[in-house]
């Protein structure tokens, strides 16, 4: 049996196996730490910072930091909650997140986190960016104004020999996701569905799908994100 490590989250004693990241170790103790860029089973990147916690007083991303003995982790404190709200609001204003016009609405991780944190409005001015919509691929379309640059598609969608289908192009404010032009023909239906599901927002959508789940039956309509971990609502 793997070695067990003792640590505390918000002064609650926790136990988890050595080698787990804080996010995973917290989940084993029924504590939810929100994530956006993290994919279970794939090497974490710490791109979105929504999982930031205070570890022994220092801010660290919980998806990339392995647990260690006697770690004192602050997760659900007013300061951390406020910081997470600010990150979410920043993501909302920096893209064009018109939820009523998005096929992903109701099953969107970004939206679900905003619901969970009770965000009623953004405190920052809307940027209304004007990036392109790329519908050239036969199976998927990309709306770059919705992309939160979490790298989930880059890290999660790969060929059998480990090459990424997706990559970043351009720099800074114009940074966007592109599909490898040589690999693009190898994107199977299965991988296209996986890419659309992996995208935490509506930036990668399957073509010829549309609004296929009625309102009220979508993933986060009645159940908050993370509910399977901390049972916030019954």
């Amino acid at each position: 049996m793997a070695e067990l490590i003792k640590f505390t989250i918000d002064n609650q004693d926790c136990l988890a196996e050595k080698g787990l990241y804080i996010v995973e170790a917290a989940a084993k103790n029924n504590i939810y730490i929100p994530t956006l860029c993290n994919i279970p089973g794939v090497k974490p990147r710490g791109a979105c910072r929504i999982c930031s916690v205070r570890v022994n007083g220092k801010l660290m991303s919980a998806c990339t930091t392995p647990i260690a003995d006697n770690m004192k982790i602050e997760n659900n404190t007013p300061e951390i909650v406020e910081m997470r709200k600010i990150i979410l609001e920043t993501l909302f204003v920096s893209g064009n997140h018109f939820c009523p016009a998005c096929e992903r609405s109701g099953s969107c991780d970004l939206q679900a986190l905003a619901y969970r944190f009770g965000i009623l409005n953004q405190r920052f001015p809307y940027q209304f960016p004007s990036k392109s919509i790329d519908a050239s691929h036969p199976k998927i379309m990309k709306d770059h104004d919705r992309c939160i640059l979490c790298k989930r598609c880059i890290r999660g969608i790969k060929t059998e020999d480990g090459k990424s289908f997706f990559a970043y192009k351009k720099r800074g404010q114009t940074l966007e996701i592109s599909i490898d032009t040589e690999l693009t023909s190898q994107l199977t239906d299965e991988l296209a569905i996986k890419a659309a599901n992996l995208c935490p927002v509506g930036a990668i959508l399957l073509k010829e799908r549309g609004y296929n789940i009625p309102i009220g039956k979508r993933q986060y309509d009645l159940t908050p994100i993370g509910n399977e971990i901390d049972h916030l609502e019954k």
């Binding site: 018109f98 009523p100 016009a101 009623l120 953004q122 809307y126 209304f128 960016p129 004007s130």
Partner: peptide
């Protein structure tokens, strides 16, 4: 009180913004 997405975010009419 801002009621609804259009009052709160500009909403669907704001899809023309900068486009």
């Amino acid at each position: 009180i801002s009621l609804g997405e259009c009052a709160r975010t500009g909403g669907l009419p704001a899809m023309r913004n900068n486009k």
